[in-house]
Amino acid sequence: MSDAVLPAIERPRAQPMGESGLVKGLLIGTALLFLTAFLFLPLITVFLEGFRKGADVFFDSFSDPDTMAAVKLTLLVAAIAVPFNALVGIAASWAIAKFNFAGKNLLLTLIDLPFSISPVISGLVYVLLFSAHGWLGPWLIANDIEIIFAVPGIVLATVFVTFPFVARELIPLMQSQGTSEEEAALTLGASGFHTFLRVTLPNIKWALLYGVLLCNARAMGEFGAVSVVSGHIRGLTNTMPLHIEILYNEYNFVAAFAVATLLAGLALLTLVAKSFLEWRYAGELAASHRH
């Protein structure tokens, strides 16, 4: 996945295999057709549905307190889960890429776990742990701590599901960069922290940003795991994706698609931010990769 941050200018300009114009056109045409049919059209549909009954109805959808609560909850969950996963992701990637230790492969596998199991199961794991009859349930009840069917449970499930994004971006990059720049910095007398700040971090910042953006998009959009632990209490434990489903099931299609538009808009904004940064810093990016 990390090659997504590589700048386009690195790619060879010449046609490597010299395909004929027809083949080239056919390939490009197929790709465009696919993108239009499977990505662009559905997205347009979301926007059109949202505005089907006019802009007034669209904006009215957001005056509903339950909808606002869902938007706020989604932002809150992302605001906790994303920085947490960025920090832990950096630490885990650092440990895996720069050191050799027993159990390293196990750790690598564990990092992939949230990707490889269904989000529903991720949610059920937390139900097993924290529900009234779960392992920790009786203790939590005795101490009056609410986790499942409350905001902490939603945050936990989101953290779990979105954990791999940052680490998965960083590990291959840090492994390919090796440890010699850090070793050079250390022999030059830099402290460990100084080395991290001035050498490691600048080298991974694009991959880190990319991972954080993906992590954020998923944190705001996660449905399965959150649905299992949410309890679906209107105005309290419904995130935007859950609220969209509820609105849809209440035949409130305009409101459902209005919220969906907001969610899709946030995702698009994320991608635009990423593209802008890549374009703005293309030179620096190229310099740091052509080495």
């Binding site: 010699s180 720049e181 910095a185 830099a190 001035r198 600048p202 620096e284």
Partner: peptide
Amino acid sequence: RIGFVFQHYALFRHMPVMDNIAFGLRA
């Protein structure tokens, strides 16, 4: 206080030559 030179240079790729050479002093 070792001056170590690596086979693959290990220059700080995101820094210009000036900052590379000054790194040890600034640290």
